[in-house]
Design a binder for these strands. Structure first.
Lengths: 216, 216
DNA sequence: AAACCCGCTTTGTGATCACAAAGTATGCAT
DNA sequence: ATGCATACTTTGTGATCACAAAGCGGGTTT
């Protein structure tokens, strides 16, 4: 037999490991906008050759997580106000739909989990941990949207998050939060009540409110 | 001086040429769903080594234009009914928004151009040219959406088109068209009248109608 | 007749190298 | 002191190669 001698230990290709690590850093605001990086530098950090470093970088470029000069150098993007507005509008469109599709499947266990995540977010705020806050905030949204059973839409939403990652950190610096975003409470309340219009509005507001500050 | 000795002749990197050609084939339904391809095969066809072939393939995988087995083999995706429904919903969401943003900027020159494209579409239908039909149909949509001045949204819409490419060909085979899709006429009419609700409905219908047939 | 095992072939992965273009700093001339 | 040309360094691109794993037959055994 022995089809899979070590099912728990998936070796994970080198380029994939590099990709995933960089993706997390970018999505959760670990890297500031405009930060440049070199293929050799990436390879050195992950102890791999240029080949997998290049593949990971190009994949992130394809997803809009990194931008590329005409000479092939990569860096995190510095988004214009117009682009931020577009991405916020995309978040609103897609995530409202995802929430709406998740609503009929949202049982009590899911709502309790969302409330748990909300207390965790409050933790990150108290600790002034920008990266932790962004990651946990996105986890709140992802947990809800997973219930929509719509992987293609969720992938699109995550791609938008990825493009906004470095910018979200800059945002966090400006609006020095003191408490949990209250739209999260509204989302949970609408889920409990089965209130679809209320849910749509709450999600749209939560997704839009922060980004508005960056457009000016 | 001579900053740019040959401004018209941009050499275009090998991997980019491969990428663009494959992307066109996929988006316009030149390749059937489930079609497998090898990196060495791609390299051979374009007379390049495996390196740029691999980059082009992985970029297309990142955009959802190709799917990949766990062992790294690539092929055009065979979409499930659920996934087609999701992608159709995404088209509706994004393209309705793009059309709505294009409306206030749509002048007579644009409308005339759209009508020209419509006659061209009728041509492709008469000629029974599936690939030509799909390409020209998407050109109609792209021409309209370009006026929205929303590059991030347009890129998202095109990514959805790309994912649906191989499936669109299969669709074309089923609904043996005899005449121009009448929603295209409705779109032009709504643009002329400045009728935003009508435009939204026409775009949503045009985008949704064909795909419905594939879900069953 | 069907299942299985073992060989060869095909194929993706990653490292290394040569090369060209872009970027950067140095030094000279005005 | 400033502008510019030139040499050097850094960096991405693409080709080639070694390797391991996956796919694919054919042949044997039960």
């Amino acid at each position: 037999m022995l089809i899979n001698p070590r099912p728990s230990e998936i070796p994970a290709a080198a380029h994939d490991r590099v990709y995933r690590t960089l993706r997390s850093r970018i999505m959760y605001g670990d890297i500031a906008p405009g930060q440049a990086m070199t293929l050799r530098g990436i390879g050195e950090e992950f102890e791999v050759s240029m080949t997998p470093a290049r593949e990971a970088a190009r994949r992130l470029v394809a997803e809009g997580a990194l931008s590329m000069t005409s000479s092939g150098r990569v860096s995190t993007p510095e988004l214009s106000g117009e682009r931020i507005e577009e991405l916020a509008a995309l978040r609103a469109l897609i995530e409202v739909e995802l929430a709406s599709r998740a609503l009929p499947r949202a049982h009590m266990a899911l709502i309790e989990r969302l409330q748990m995540i909300n207390t965790s977010i409050a933790d990150q705020i108290a600790r002034q941990d920008a990266v932790g806050y962004i990651r946990t905030n996105l986890e709140f949204h992802r947990t809800l949207y997973l219930r929509a059973q719509a992987p293609a839409m969720l992938a699109m939403a995550e791609q938008v998050w990825l493009q906004l990652g470095p910018t979200m950190r800059a945002l966090y610096g400006r609006l020095r939060r003191k408490e949990l975003p209250h739209f999260h409470r509204l989302i949970v309340a609408a889920l409990k009540a089965g209130d679809e219009p209320g849910l749509r509005l709450a999600v749209r507001s939560d997704v839009t409110q922060g980004l508005k500050m960056l457009v000016r």
